[in-house]
């Protein structure tokens, strides 16, 4: 579905990444590997059309990405390395806001079920600022389920998470792929979950 060909990006005459091609189709999990500062986040931003590549083209469903942007955006979830939850609101309020702005039809029983799997259910009324970093990250990953889109783009999803949760997420990725979804995520270490493709930056 998503096809990126020979992407190159230069900033201030410095090459950030060069000649990278990926093809993302349903059922695929792609991992972006690279050291700190190797341009993983920048690459993801390019794929999101937030940055323009210096050369190279991106296609979405056979059309140029910039011609088909709205449809593309309607089909993806982006989890940035920063957490987008609002610190001064409670977990429940955050979930409610997400449910509203992403027009999600997921019911609360299902959300509570996932929350209890992630060990977050006890914090439902607590402010996000009182949560630990790992818990905030887990809450952020909940957005994957709430938005319920086809493509998942994740930037460093496994920082601050314990092994158990990482395996749980790996499981979720596989389930998503079975439902014709696809995942692309970046990581600076090997997360030890099954992937179908690997891109080194």
């Amino acid at each position: 579905m998503l096809l990126a060909q020979n992407l190159t990006l230069c900033r201030l005459e410095r090459i950030i990444f060069e000649n990278i091609s990926i093809s993302l189709s349903s059922g695929k999990i792609i991992i972006l590997k690279g050291k700190n500062g190797s341009g993983k986040t920048t690459f993801l931003k390019t794929i999101l059309n937030l940055l323009e590549p210096t050369s190279g083209t991106i296609y979405w469903k056979g059309k140029l990405l910039s011609r088909n942007l709205y449809d593309y955006y309607n089909n993806l979830t982006y989890i940035a390395d920063k957490t987008s939850s609002i610190k001064q609101l409670s977990v429940y309020e955050n979930i409610k806001i997400w449910k509203k702005i992403f027009s999600s039809h997921m019911n609360y029983e299902k959300i509570e079920e996932i929350l209890s799997i992630l060990n977050l259910k006890v914090f439902l009324g607590a402010r996000v600022s009182t949560l630990s970093l790992g818990e905030i990250k887990k809450l952020e990953l909940l957005r994957l389920m709430i938005e319920n889109k086809k493509i998942w783009i994740l930037d460093e999803p496994f920082t601050n998470l314990d092994m158990e949760t990482i395996n749980l997420i790996g499981q979720t990725f596989e389930d998503h792929c079975k439902n014709e979804g696809c995942v692309i995520f970046s990581s600076h270490q090997d997360p030890l979950i099954p992937v179908s493709d690997e891109v080194n930056l």
């Binding site: 999101l48 937030l50 955006y73 993806l76 982006y78 940035a80 920063k82 957490t83 987008s84 939850s85 609002i86 610190k87 702005i101």
Partner: peptide, 9 residues
């Protein structure tokens, strides 16, 4: 906190 990007996406 990245919410502007989120809204745009």
């Amino acid at each position: 906190n990245g919410n502007l990007t989120l809204l745009h996406l």
